[in-house]
Design a protein around this nucleic acid. Structure first.
Lengths: 342, 342
DNA sequence: GCGTGCTATGTTTACGTAAACATTTTGAGT
DNA sequence: ACTCAAAATGTTTACGTAAACATAGCACGC
C-alpha cells in the first residue's frame, strides 16, 4: 500500500488519523512516536504499520508547542565569505548537532541599523531556542544588539560589554606570537597588513602587533589596511617599501598573505630569503602556498563547541554568568619565515 | 519599567497575559501582533505598551501550528569544507531570506548509511517546510534518499532519477570549455587532475574532459585523482610527466590548482610558459594566484536562487514536475594559460 | 427615530501533541 | 480462585495562537 500522506479533508496525517486507523488511542500513538516504552510489542507494530500506511509524520510545530522548545539554535551572521566565519558556523552546527540541536542561519547582508533591526525583528518569528551572533563587524553604537527579551544570546568575536555571553579566539596572544617569532628570527621590526577597520578581530590583531613591538622597543611601521581578500593583500603588498627596510610582514589573515606573495614575487623579492611572511587563520590551503605559509592556527572546532556549551549553560540556567571562554591560538611555523639576510 | 518576561507561574509571557495587562481580549493582542489593521489607535498603543512592559514575545511554535508552516528551509549538507558547498549554502540562505524563509542546517558528518538515515530521521523532528540536499558525495545505492513522505525535496549536484526535483550547474559545458580553450591555444592534449571518485561533480567534469578530447581526436592521458584539497593537487602535480609531454593541465577545482602551482614551480616549470593550468570554481582568491588563474566561474547565486525557486514551486503545487534548471558556467581567462612553447 | 452598514472588539474553537490522571488488563503470589 | 501491583491503554486537558463567528457601538440616510 502506498502512503496517502493526507487525511480525509486534505489535512496532513495526524496522530488522530493514525490512532483511528490502528484502532488505538492517540496517546498510544504518541507513546510509540516518543519513548516507545510502555507499549506492548503487538500494539507498537500495529501502530508503526499504520504510520507507514498513512505516511504519518509528526508535526514539529505541535511538538515544539507542547514541549516548549525547538532544539534549534539560530546563528546571525553578516557574511559567509570569510574563512573564519564559515569554519565557525560549521563548527557550531556540528557541535549543536552533537547536542541534538539543529542550527538555523539568519544571514544579514549589510550591517546597517535598518537591516540588523529587521533581522532581529524576524528573530521574534524564528523557531529558535537561543541565538549565536557572529559579530565580526562593528555595529554603529545606535545599532547595539537589540535582541528579543528572554532569548539567550552568545556573541562571538565582538567587543561586548559585561553581562553578555561571549566566546572568542585569543587574537591577542596569536598576534603576539607572530611578532615575537619574527623578532626572534632577528628581524628589526615587523610590518602589518591589517584587516578592515570595522572588524573587531582585525583591530585586536593590529593592537597586539603594535603592543608587542613596543614591548620589544621597536618602532612600529604604519599598518597597511586590507579588507581580508587576497586582492587587497596584493595591493597592500605593492605599497610596502622595497629593499632591506621591510624584511618581515604579518598579514591579518592567510588570504591577504596569498595576495602578498604575488606582490612580493612581482617586485622581485623571494620568500623567505628577502621577506618573511606570516598569516592568520591557518586555512586549509596555506600549507600548499609556495612556500607553505607560517601562520596562526585557530581552533574553530573548539570555538564552536564553546559557543554551544555557553548557549546550553544559559538555557539550563539563565541567571548563570558567562564563563567567557577564550579559545587558544597556536603558531604553525612553515617555510615562509626565516632570519633576515645579513 | 523593565520587562518581566515571565508570567505568574514562571511561564513565558503569552497573549493572554498581555491581554489581561492591557485590559483587552487576546484576539485584539493577536491583531496588533499581526495585521495591526482593524485596531483603533489608542487600543493599539495600549497593547504595544503592555507588550513592552511584560516583554512579550510571540511563541513561534504556536504560530507555526496555527499557520501550518514554519517559513523555514532545511539544508542537508555533508561538508562545509569545499568552496562550492559553502557558496551554495550561502546563496540558498540569502535567496531564502529574500523569500521570507529562514534556513536550517542539518550537517551529516560522514555519508554512511547509518548517519544519513539518522539525519533523515531527525528531519522528521525538524521545524522545516522543505529540504534541499546538497549531495556532492555519492551515497551507496542502499542509502538512496529515504525522505519523510510528503516533504518537498530539491537535490543539488547529484545524479538523480526522474521524478525528483533537482538543480545543478552545467559541469559538462564548463569542462568542455576548458578543454577546447586549451586545445585552441595549440596544446596537443590536456591532462586532468580529477576530484574524488565519489563526487558527482568530479565525475561529470572528468567525463566531459575525456569526451571533449575524443571529439577532437586527441588521446586522453590518464586522469590523476585528488580529493579537492590543495595538498592533493600538489601531490598529483608531482606525478605529472616532466618535459614537453605535459603542457596543459585542467584541475577539477581551484584549490587543487593552487597545489599544482607549487608542484610545477618546485619541479622547475613556469606557468604558463611551460605548462598551462586551468581550474574550476573561480574562488575569490584565484585572481590573486601567481599567475592569476584561468578558471570556470559557476554562478552560485543563481544556483541558490534556483534551488529556492524550485522549493517554492513545489510548496505551491506538489504535483508540478521540476523544471530541473541547469545553471550556466563561464570561462574566465586570466594569465595561467598560453600557447605551448614551440 | 429607526433601520443599515460599517468598524472595533470579544468569544469560541481548532490546530496536533503529550503530560497528568484514570481505567483496564495482566500476571505473580498465595 | 483471589488479591494486589505493575503494565498497558484510554481520557482529559493545556500548550499559545489566529481563524471564524458573534456582538456592540456608532454614523448616516431617510
Amino acid at each position: 500500500m502506498t502512503p496517502v500522506s493526507s487525511a480525509p479533508g486534505g489535512r496532513r496525517v495526524s496522530m488522530a488519523d493514525v490512532a483511528a486507523h490502528a484502532g488505538v488511542s492517540s496517546q498510544t500513538v504518541s507513546r510509540v512516536s516518543n519513548d516507545s516504552s510502555k507499549v506492548s510489542e503487538p500494539t507498537r507494530d500495529k501502530v508503526l504499520q499504520s504510520m507507514r500506511d498513512l505516511g504519518y509524520r509528526p508535526n514539529s510545530a505541535a511538538r515544539a508547542l507542547k514541549r516548549g522548545h525547538f532544539r534549534t539554535l539560530g546563528i546571525i551572521t553578516f557574511t559567509m565569505t570569510t574563512y573564519g566565519n564559515v569554519r565557525t558556523i560549521d563548527a557550531i552546527a556540528q557541535a549543536a548537532a552533537g547536542a541534538g540541536y539543529a542550527t538555523t542561519l539568519l544571514p544579514v547582508r549589510v550591517p546597517t541599523q535598518r537591516s540588523v533591526h529587521r533581522a532581529f525583528g524576524r528573530l521574534e518569528e524564528l523557531a529558535v531556542d537561543a541565538v549565536i551572533v557572529i559579530m565580526e563587524t562593528n555595529l554603529r553604537d545606535s545599532d547595539h544588539l537589540i535582541l528579543p527579551p528572554g532569548m539567550p544570546v552568545v556573541v562571538v568575536d565582538a567587543d561586548h560589554g559585561a553581562g553578555t555571553y561571549g566566546v572568542d579566539a585569543d587574537q591577542v596572544a596569536g598576534a603576539r606570537k607572530v611578532t615575537e617569532h619574527l623578532l626572534n628570527l632577528g628581524h628589526e621590526t615587523v610590518w602589518h597588513i591589517a584587516g578592515p577597520q570595522a572588524s573587531h578581530a582585525a583591530r585586536r590583531r593590529e593592537e597586539a602587533w603594535r603592543a608587542s613591538l613596543e614591548v620589544a622597543g621597536r618602532a612600529a611601521p604604519p599598518a597597511i589596511r586590507g579588507d581580508w581578500t587576497a586582492r587587497s593583500g596584493y595591493e597592500a603588498g605593492l605599497q610596502l617599501p622595497a629593499g632591506a627596510e621591510c624584511t618581515a610582514v604579518f598579514c591579518a589573515n592567510d588570504q591577504m598573505a596569498l595576495g602578498l606573495y604575488r606582490a612580493l614575487r612581482q617586485t622581485g623579492r623571494r620568500i623567505p630569503q628577502d621577506v618573511s611572511v606570516v598569516g592568520f587563520d591557518n586555512i586549509e590551503d596555506s600549507d600548499s602556498f609556495d612556500p607553505p605559509l607560517t601562520t596562526i592556527d585557530q581552533d574553530f572546532e573548539e570555538l564552536g563547541r564553546e559557543c554551544v556549551e555557553e548557549v546550553m549553560e544559559q538555557l539550563r540556567d539563565p541567571t548563570m554568568p558567562s564563563r567567557r571562554p577564550v579559545v587558544r591560538t597556536r603558531l604553525v611555523v612553515r617555510d615562509s619565515t626565516a632570519a633576515p639576510a645579513k
